[in-house]
Amino acid sequence: MTSVTDAAPPRPAFRLTRAFHGIERLIVPALLIAGWEAFARSGMLPPALLPAPSAVLHALGDWVFGFDETTQTYSGHWLRDALASALRVFGGFALASLLGILAGVAIGWSRLFEKTLEPTLQMLRPIPPVSWIPLAIIWFGIADKPAIFLVFLGAFFPVLMNSIHGVKTVDHNLVRAGAMMGANQRQMLTDIVLPAALPSIFAGLRIAVGSAWMLTVTAEMVAVKSGLGYVLWDSYYFLRYDIVLAAMISIGLLGYLSDLGLKAIMARTLRWQQTTTVQGRAG
């Protein structure tokens, strides 16, 4: 019998483990797409109602690069449509972040703001942003503004709630330590409470950017005549489900990219925070 100290750590039985790293996350999507393609080609549904992934890819390619005008008037206009949506997302999200953080920190920090501001905001919060569409249209007309307004409504509350939570849960002893070192009220806020609340604020921003994409697309379906959501809804009227799906994929991709961007900013800002997950050290 070998002694305990001599025992080498068990070698991985499957030597391809390393080669598999990164591939394993592609297995499920690949299976889904293959199954979808097979089902679409089986002829159980008319191709117009369920386009095959290959057809969707074709439509997306033409929408982006405009090689054979299969997407007709949209051919080659993807960048314009995506940009239109992205600008609305950015506008509404930026406004919501700014006001959400300001209001959240004020409410979390000061009893006065908590008493005066919070009840109103909490009453507005359960109203679905979508239900503001009729008012948004009569106030702002059919253009960018109602969309930005809706994005703002959808993104504001996650930022607000998480900012309030972040400020309220700041370690009481950090505030004491700050007072001990002679921080005045302003320094307490800018040098202690705000940095301590940042992880929570960022969590709110990440939820908000997702809501922002959802609401841009919703607004574009109803109140705007451009952008990915408009293309999606317009194609639905012409029964072009390949373009509908291409638009859905585009939205998913852009939403994912915005979240990645935000995550990168968060990782840089919160470099001090070495989080440990149940599966080990991350970031």
Binding site: D171, N173, A177, M180, P195, A196, W272
Partner: peptide
């Protein structure tokens, strides 16, 4: 009357600013 830098406190937990 209030906390101040004429009295240095060392807490039971280090209570450092984790971002610094």
């Amino acid at each position: 009357e209030r906390p101040g830098s004429d009295r240095g406190v060392v807490f039971q937990q280090p209570t450092l600013m984790p971002w610094l």
